[in-house]
Design a protein around this nucleic acid. Structure first.
Lengths: 198, 198
DNA sequence: GTCTATAGAGGGATAGAC
DNA sequence: GTCTATCCCTCTATAGAC
């Protein structure tokens, strides 16, 4: 499956999987090569150093997210629907056993090249800027209940889900869902019918 | 400083420092040995395998916390003061550039021995149980504003600070303080005078 | 309890053939 | 663009002297 799309892209896909499952220091060129059925050196051809690889990975997260938020905007989605779409992204990470890339770089920060940390910080900016805008708009329209500064709410929202993904690995998926519903509740969003969308 | 306390204890102290700064996979016996001025093999004498070492570390977190919460109880501290003491612990991590051990194990979960993950889960239980009890009591007394289940509030509180410590490494200390104040605000606790305690 | 020395595995990275 | 082969490093862990 998915065989004809250039090794470079396939490397990035496998790397993303490994990165969010095992962390920066926890995956190797060997593991990528094995999963793709090529050799170590082939991976180094496309990404000479691990820094190059992870940098490309983080840039990809950023551009994917930029594209995604543009889609939301172009479709004229309401703040509620924007948030629900965002929750769906996070829930998907959860179901795939992944954690947020920001958490990975945050935890391993001191063992990661400066450029990588900087790119992760830029990704955090992108996410927070968008979330803040959505919350601000939703607050003005009265569709969302915003307590305090929207920037702080955005931070709390992102942080809650980031920690939820991590804690789910220790305590099971429920803790993620509890945190998700808690955030929804705070924003005045109705909880969905139980078992309607599982 | 702090020279006469048995190598075993000094190893655990250095290991804790490294663990919360660099992650599970990010520190080595070499680094511990260098900082203590001994050899690699001396560390292995006290902790034969890395699993032994990190397990001892997590058990130490747990027993420290148990002791700490017993202190709080014995002193008959109010829920507010209990929470403020907890915030102080987290703020200290922040100032020392550390992240929460639960975040470390959560992120690197798949590259960590099962027993280590289990011990981290037990530590999470201890923390959540205590926080839940404090929030419940504070809610009944009317000293804290609890929205929804105390268990969910405890989770949100812990998660917020956990993520705050990680994000502070990417975006600077302010994000941690913003999250902290946000949590305080939610619980109906007054924010301290600006610049009073920096 | 700490040392020297070393085994053995795996990591990142490169050279040069094809 | 991928391969084989290899270098060099760091890591965990152990054996045996002191």
């Amino acid at each position: 499956m998915a065989a004809r799309q250039g090794t470079r892209q396939r490397i990035l896909e496998v790397a993303e999987e490994l990165f969010q499952h095992r962390g920066y220091g926890g995956f190797s060129y060997q593991q990528i090569a094995e999963r793709l059925g090529v050799r170590n050196a082939a991976v180094h051809y496309h990404f000479p150093s691990k820094t190059d690889l992870v940098l490309a990975l983080l840039r990809r997260y950023r551009s994917s997210f930029i594209w995604w938020q543009d889609q939301m905007r172009r479709r004229g989605e309401t703040p509620e629907r924007c948030l629900e779409a965002f929750f769906a992204l996070e829930r998907r990470y959860m179901e795939e056993g992944k954690v947020c890339p920001l958490g990975v770089v945050g935890v391993e920060s001191e063992g990661v090249p400066d450029v990588v940390r900087a790119e992760a910080a830029a990704l955090a900016d992108d996410l927070l800027r968008w979330l803040t805008a959505v919350l601000t708009q939703g607050g003005k329209q009265g569709a969302l209940r915003i307590m305090g500064a929207p920037e702080a709410c955005a931070l709390a929202l992102m942080g809650s889900l980031q920690a939820g993904l991590q804690l789910a690995r220790l305590k099971g998926p429920e803790v993620f869902y509890i945190l998700l519903e808690q955030q929804r509740g705070q924003l005045g969003l109705m909880t969905r019918q139980v078992a309607a969308g599982a």
